[in-house]
Each structure stands twice: as structure tokens, then as C-alpha cells.
Design a protein around this nucleic acid. Structure first.
Lengths: 87, 87
DNA sequence: TTGATATTTAGACAAATGTCTAAATAATTC
DNA sequence: GAATTATTTAGACATTTGTCTAAATATCAA
């Protein structure tokens, strides 16, 4: 839970998740969407991966990133505990 | 959105939200649940308030904090955008 | 094997964060 | 009004974070 919220606590990383929602992308394609150096994006991708929010797969010289919807659902559950309060 | 995720990115603050889910509490009552100084808890409460996650109401010399479920729902919405991916 | 491309790792640095103690503010009670 | 209680504000300090440049690793293509 800690790594999850930590990963979400950055506008760039949340934007990356939105990008991946539209489809898988390589690290380079993702970096092209931002005015931030590639090493910085690489670091953001690493944090998202640590949190389980994205998965990385190496294909030839590229690394393709994809959204892990299972974990996104998991965190949605966290909020539901607050909604289902009736008393 | 920024302030919201920032506020959620701390275990103590998430624990405070869970406490308030059970019912309103004064700043002192909240502080008693943690092994952290009162000024630190006060600071956490301030961040939660800035994010709109809690509301504060002064009653005599006490300040009672309550959970703002509307904002909790709002952030739940943020995750739904990832769930409703069909293509 | 040499050169080019894709990506990460390493290290540095300024800014933000969580915590503390001491002091300030506000309300209550004697 | 002085002492007590509840809470916050102010300031300090160590740790974490986001960014960068330079260098390392890996794959491809000639």
C-alpha cells in the first residue's frame, strides 16, 4: 500500500498511467510525451513497476510498458472501505 | 488532485482517515492513537484538511475533525477511469 | 568489430517532507 | 487575573524525492 500511494504521488507518474491506459508503449515513446530527461522517466517507470502498477517486457532493444489493471482495481478497493459506511 | 495524493502518501494520515471513518474525533483523541508528538499530528491534520479529506470544527477549546466522504468518493472516481477500459 | 540506438545505472544536488522541541493562542476554571 | 488544558505555529534538522549529466549495458546493422 505504501509503494502504491508513493507511486501515485507524482503528476508525471499519474500521466504515464493515463498514457498506458490507451495502450502499451516503449520507454522511449513514453519519454517523448514529457519535457523531462529519459533517465528521469526511467526512474518514474521503475517506481511504477515497484508499486506493481505497470509491467515491463523486453522486446529486442525496446522495453514495452503496460498498465496493470489488477493493481489499479486493488487500490480502488481501498477507497471503497470508506464509501460503505452506513452507520 | 495533487494535494489529495500528497495527503494520502503517508501511513499515519491514512490511519487517521480510518479512525475518522468510525466517527468524529478531537485533535487530542486522534493524537492519542499514535506515538508521535501532538504538533506532528496537528501538521498531518492540516495536510488532510488542505486536501479536503477532513473538516475541522471548533467546539469550545476542542477542535473536532470529521471525514469528508464526498472527497473520498471524488478520488475513487479517479480510479474508475482506468477500470472502464473496454477496447 | 565498429557505430548507432534504446534504456538503465550511478552520483550529485536542490527542494520537499516528517519529525521534534519551544513558544504562541485560545478557552476554562479557580 | 493566574493557572490549566487543548491545539497550533515557528523553526530546526535529517531523510526522501525529482531532476540532471555522464557513464554503463544491451541490441541491431553495416
Amino acid at each position: 500500500m505504501n509503494l502504491l500511494f508513493k507511486a501515485l504521488n507524482d503528476a508525471t507518474r499519474r500521466e504515464i498511467l493515463k498514457l498506458l491506459k490507451e495502450g502499451d508503449k516503449t520507454a522511449g515513446e513514453i519519454a517523448d510525451h514529457f519535457h523531462i530527461s529519459k533517465p528521469s522517466i526511467s526512474h518514474h517507470l521503475d517506481l511504477l513497476k515497484q508499486a506493481g502498477l505497470v509491467a515491463a517486457e523486453k522486446q529486442a532493444q525496446f522495453i514495452t510498458y503496460s498498465l496493470n489493471t489488477t493493481v489499479v482495481d486493488e487500490i480502488a478497493q481501498w477507497f471503497i472501505q470508506f464509501k460503505t459506511k452506513k452507520k
